[in-house]
Design a protein around this nucleic acid. Structure first.
Length: 421
DNA sequence: TCTGGGGTCCTAGGACCC
DNA sequence: TCTGGGGTCCTAGGACCC
């Protein structure tokens, strides 16, 4: 019988922060999104205080202060490096791993299905704990969707003690009948509302829906989901990472921008970062979209959403070419008199650099590749933004805020924690 | 009054995920 | 004053073809 496990780190970003700062243990902690805008990770204590995922921090400031909630800026360098360590620990217990997100992996345990799987995954959880200090929960089921349900049950219901195994049909039925349909993986707001009008409120009811009806309510996506809830796999554990389709670098500004040159500065920085990201994946892009817009939350203020798409030919991963394309887009779309709060670069039509179509006019290409390599080496060694184009400007008031970011504990030699005897 | 029957490709937008 | 960033997949509809 197929056995798929989903291992998920508890309160992941907070757990990463706690690994290096014991003063965060046992107190309410939240990690803020970029620009210190929203709460995107909460400790159990913070959840108990009613802090919701995505709550704007400035709207709950009073409550945070009253209860002494620690608010940290996000530190993705740390979370990314910790993920690598978590995956390494999991790998000792299974070869087939699909890294689903920064804090979740699917693991195919079918080859071990004759063993006591609960004991097996508890060994895995212990290993992750020992190597990283991070607590996890595991759900086991015959399909990925059921493993997801199992994982949520393991987290919510203390009865499971961190591991829920839904391979047994009776236990599975018991859990599904009590599981809100809106919490099922793949059921969002819109679908949940439609299901509600049909009287479908639990995962058990969704499982029992007619396929035809499921397709009508949703699309093939919902149809597959029903099959998965019935125990029929519609999606396999994907060990190899699929070819990326798009890539983006977008940021909200620390302060609104009203001036074209300032916007160019921000866009220049994002274009440079986008190029770096492309090269690190060995890709080139065929399309670049640049956008910028005003604050959509302030409906009483004048709004402007601007976006321009530029074709890149030849296809490119050259930051300076991306920058030039982005500048053209911004110039074409710029309108005076607005307070812009966010901008971004999106890249599409991605192709591995060795598979890109050649053109007749690449005489300079070798030198440009060497220039980009040198740029990446300098910025890799001496820190991001060591070498930047003048277009990024010197007055960068728009740079996002991050008032309380933890050190790069594990990735910068001058920031590793020091233990004193 | 009558006005074919297929295809393909592309894009925009919706819905969803963490 | 202060509201994240980065992805995927699917469908409908238009443009175009024979």
């Amino acid at each position: 019988m197929t056995a798929i496990a989903l291992i998920d780190c508890n309160n992941y970003y907070v757990s990463c922060e706690r690994a290096f700062d014991s003063s965060l243990v046992g107190v309410p902690v939240i990690v803020a999104s970029n620009n210190d805008g929203c709460a995107i990770a909460r400790s159990q204590e913070a959840k108990a205080l009613g802090v919701k995922m995505g709550d704007p921090i400035h709207l709950i400031r009073d409550r945070l202060d009253k209860h002494g909630v620690r608010v940290l800026s996000s530190n993705y360098t740390l979370y990314g490096d910790m993920q690598r360590r978590v995956v390494a620990a999991v790998e000792e217990f299974a070869s087939e791993i699909e890294i689903y997100s920064i804090d979740e992996s699917f693991v195919d345990l079918t080859p071990f299905a004759d063993r006591d799987l609960v004991a097996h995954v508890n060994g895995m959880r212990d290993q992750v704990r020992r190597w990283t200090t991070i607590p996890t929960c595991v759900g086991i089921g015959p399909t990925k969707t059921l493993a997801k349900v199992a994982n949520a049950a393991a987290k919510k219901n203390p009865l499971f003690d961190g591991v829920a195994d839904l391979r047994d049909a009776v236990i599975r039925g018991f859990v599904l009948d009590r599981f809100p349909v809106c919490d099922v993986w793949g059921v969002g707001r819109a679908t949940a509302a439609k299901l509600m009008t049909l009287g479908v409120t639990t995962a058990g009811q969704l499982r029992d829906m007619q396929m035809k009806q499921a397709r009508g309510v949703g699309t093939v996506v919902l149809e597959r989901l029903v099959a998965e809830l019935q125990g029929v796999a519609a999606s396999a554990v994907e060990v190899v990472e699929p070819q990326r389709r798009g890539m983006a670098v977008t940021r909200s500004f620390g302060l609104p921008i009203r001036d074209l040159e300032q916007l160019m500065g921000a866009v220049a920085q994002y274009a440079m970062r986008a190029g770096e990201k492309l090269r690190s994946h060995g890709l080139v892009a065929g399309q670049l979209t640049v956008f910028f817009h005003t604050n959509p939350h302030k409906r009483d203020r004048p709004q402007h959403h601007a976006s321009r798409r530029v074709t890149l030919h030849p296809m490119s991963a050259d930051s300076l070419e991306l920058l030039a394309a982005a500048r053209r887009g911004v110039e074409a779309a710029w309108r005076d008199g607005f307070a812009y709060t966010k901008a971004g670069i999106m890249l599409d039509d991605l192709v591995a650099v060795e598979l890109r179509p050649r053109t007749l006019f690449e005489c300079d290409a070798e030198r440009r590749v060497r220039l980009m390599t040198a740029l990446d080496e300098v910025n890799g060694r001496f820190g991001r933004f060591t070498a930047v184009p003048a277009a990024q400007g010197f007055n960068r008031g728009w740079q996002a805020r991050a008032d309380s970011r933890s050190p790069a504990w594990t990735t910068r030699i001058d920031e590793v924690p020091v233990v004193r005897a």
